[in-house]
Write a protein that binds this DNA or RNA. Sequence first.
RNA 1: GGGCCAGUAGCUUAGCUAGGUUGAGCGUUCGGCUGAUAACCGGGAGGUCCUCGGUUCAAAUCCGAGCUGGCCCA
Length: 1042
Amino acid sequence: MDIDDEITQRYDPHDVEPEVKEYWEDADAYEAAKEAHSDDPDLYFLDGPPYTSGQMHLGTAWNKTLKDAVVRYLRMRGHNVTDRPGYDMHGLPIEVKVEEELGFENKSDIEEYGVENFIDECKEFAEENLGAMNDDFRSMGVWMDWDDPYRTLSPEYMEGAWWGFKQAFDRGLVERGKRVINQCPRCETAIADAEVEYDEIESPSIHVRFPLEDEDGSLVIWTTTPWTIPANLYVAVDGDAEYAKVRATKDGVDETLYVASDCVEDVLRAGRYDDYEVVETFDGDALVGREYEHPLADEVPRQRELDDEEGVHRVYSADFVTTDKTGLVHAAPGHGVDDFEVGQEHGLPVFSPVGPDGAYTDEAGEYAGEFVRDANPDVIEDLRASGALLAEGKESHRYGHCWRCDTPIIFAATDQWFITVTDVKDRLLDEIEESEWHPDWARDSRFRDWVENARDWNVSRQRYWGIPVPIWETESGDRICVGTREELAELAVEDIDPDEIDLHRPDVDDVVLEHPETGERAERVEDIFDVWLDSAAASWAALDYPSEDDAFDELWPADLIIEAHDQTRGWFWSQLGMGVSALDEIPYKEVVMHGHALDEDGRKMSKSVGNIVTPQEAIDRHGVDPLRCFLLSHDQQGDDMRFSWDEIEAKKRTLNVVWNTYRFPLPYMRLDGFDPDSTTVDDVETTTVDNWVLSRLQTTLSRYIEYMDGYEIDKAQRVLLDFMTEDVSRFYVQVVRPRMWEAEDSSSKNAAYATLYAVLEGATRMLAPFAPYLAERMYDNLGDVTTVHALDFPEPDESLRDETLEERMEILRDAEEAAANARQQAERKLRWPVRRVVVAADEDTRDALAALEELFLDRVNAKSLELFEEYDELIEVAEPQMGAIGPEFGEDAEKVMNAVRGEPREKVEGGVDIDGEKVTLGDDMVEYRDETPDNVEAAEFEDGTVYVDVSLDDEIRAEGYARELVRRVQEMRKELDLDVEERIRVSFDAADELLDLAMRERDYILEETRADEITDEIDADLRENWDIEGTSVTIAVELVHV
RNA sequence: GGGCCAGUAGCUUAGCUAGGUUGAGCGUUCGGCUGAUAACCGGGAGGUCCUCGGUUCAAAUCCGAGCUGGCCCA
């Protein structure tokens, strides 16, 4: 290798990063890194596909950065890591964007425009976004296989989804049936639970009387969705709660009402009754089985027919009932999930007189054709007219909206395709045990909770842009599920080229199959898949299975996935559901779950709040590596991250320290032609401090690996950066600096070179996963492999570790800090030597300092070190206690005080002299405290106390003045812009003894300033006046031309 | 309404699993160094460890209740 690069003054990511980027491209560095580990054991990392409807935001930037850091690390630890990125490219959100662009309002606009054209637009939109997102991720320095991402719209991928679905179908887990689903009336399709967003809205809030059949009185129900009353089929109560029969009076008229006991007062107040009386109370179970008359039977004739059916318009007990409004819940199995399930238990029909567009059907009688939410006032009016309305108001509450078009959703029972994951719930719960999660509570508390409550998965959508449901039905109701393109071609009536056919609508809609057994013609069902099913198949579809099977056979299931905590309901779940349904196995082994990026106030970033920070802004201001390191500096396991400009800035500063540490020795190494290959730490005589920093390097590496292996990226980063700043920059480099300008053949200098080289090389590897650009730039000057990312992490070298030395150095640094503190109190700067430093401490501490005495003296600039258990030169000084002295001495008290204050103990105890009289003081009149002698200052550290004796003598003055002069000459050299090598002559002129003393150190001055002589005969290139400790000194410097 | 996670200095956070004087970085202020110098280093000030209650000789840490924020669900 050559250390020959010019290093810019400061660390500027905007210089480093483009340069490295270009180098990576020229040198095919990414390919080289992969190649270097291609023979290592396989590790299947699976990238969760981001959705191609927008651009990279801070959350996805964090996600990809974390993945990248982990992948780079795993490679360097010896794994052949799969890194194919993915994109989720189908689905309603893209349809909605395209509809917006084209100015469409509903599905008929699409049909008019032509499904094929619409699909083309969607495809183009998705492709465009993919390109932009690819660029975004690249710009974050993420190394994945950007040239060949898996795309959910590719034929291979779509086939993978079909194949998975067919496995589930063959295992009897696919069902068509009525279920209550979230329906977006604008998009006219079912939407997933995951696609419902909850916002606050205001709805009517009504109390309604449901008159009992064959007896006096009414059940009182409460609802915020009056439009569901036309579909009401039963009323639910809490069987265990207490209910009351109430006689209520209003305007002189009595009536009987049934409500939960907890609710009596509220309900009666809402109904503005004048008076009431609780006639009797009973368990909810006592109400079960009572029948009532539907209050809108006149408006909805169908309700009369339904009334004849067994069990309809009756009271049931259900555990979803709470007693906070009336304790009686109006239930419409066609419009509520709970209502549906309890209805099914009791064999009730499903009545859902609402179309996909949210308009009532003919079955809704008088309401037919009206949009349900618009019908609310009519329903209320009709209830009022018939006397059923007991109270009316408004209520603000959270209500589900379509996540893309923001329309309030409705619940409706429609025919859908389901994967009946509830049939395999035990397997799902067993299989999650087979996966390891970081943090572990993500699995055991959060994910398990979700899986336990999971319902059958509605996978069908009544839309266009998606993977078509691969089911064909014959007229007699037989179903064919197609798993591959090959199979499709075999079963198709017409000739189809399996390599050519586009599996999207509308092409596939036209394919007619022939039933292999009956020979009957079969037509495809119109639905497409829920987009969550697409990504659910990723673990095999990203390997192009089933069209290719080598990779699948070797790699499946995925070893590792890394996503944010919102994926509990998303990809973590959908993959599990699909994997178990299709292959009876969880498709991933290890999960890292990270958090969300919040704004500086800890709120979520959103367009409407306007608090979004884009990764690009951050990169523009501070560079990629500082942003990456910032993103990776928070807890990566489950915790959210608050964005902070200051922190990125701080991170850049820390990286700058690393940069300076790296660039500091380079000019010297270059000058001396240092060759790290021939001069390693094994070839040189290392000193104690060299051994120490090499030991620290190994300790750091070992802790780094431990943290990285547990995906505690933040802690690994901290260990590394602490080492680089605290140990290397703040200590080792400071200690080792003088060795850099020793004579050319100095073995101590070579040892420092070899040591620093080893430290920098090791640290650069550790830095590579976090700050890939900076690490590459540094490595460029340190090593000769194409890229630092192709290297390995060696196991820590235990033979280089010396724990005792590390502990002792820790003590030395503490003591040094205390000494600096004491100096500061004594106002004696470090440039001036001190005669003596005394440390009082326990034996271990003394041993440590004794072992490192030379280094310690050098660090604190002291002539000698003395070590004691206790420092016996402290003086006990008297403090008069006026509370006792005052009463005793009266008007002489002040004299006594002055005579005592600040005197040493033995003098006071011998009696003090007051106006020529010897006075003895009682014990209560004086207290003593320890004080250091003159010229000694003390400072404590964790293991003891440091005493610094700053007494001056001529020798110390001579050295101090000499160093003061040297420093000024250095400053002048710099002003003259002299090279380190250039020789000078120098003259000093001062009135005082200063020069006489300083000249005792003449040789030192000559050496340090690179001066040939000190002389008065000088042709000065620069002459300046200085003030040194109050003395005026004139210094002149002349450059010696060779 | 339920589940999970978080709340420590002005800001970002460590410590919490295994209870024993809250530790750092940024900012601020005072100082040092001056051959890494538009760099670097040290000292000081700054904390009701979200609140209340409990367990304990002892609680930031364990337990309970509540408040605030985030995610997930109803």
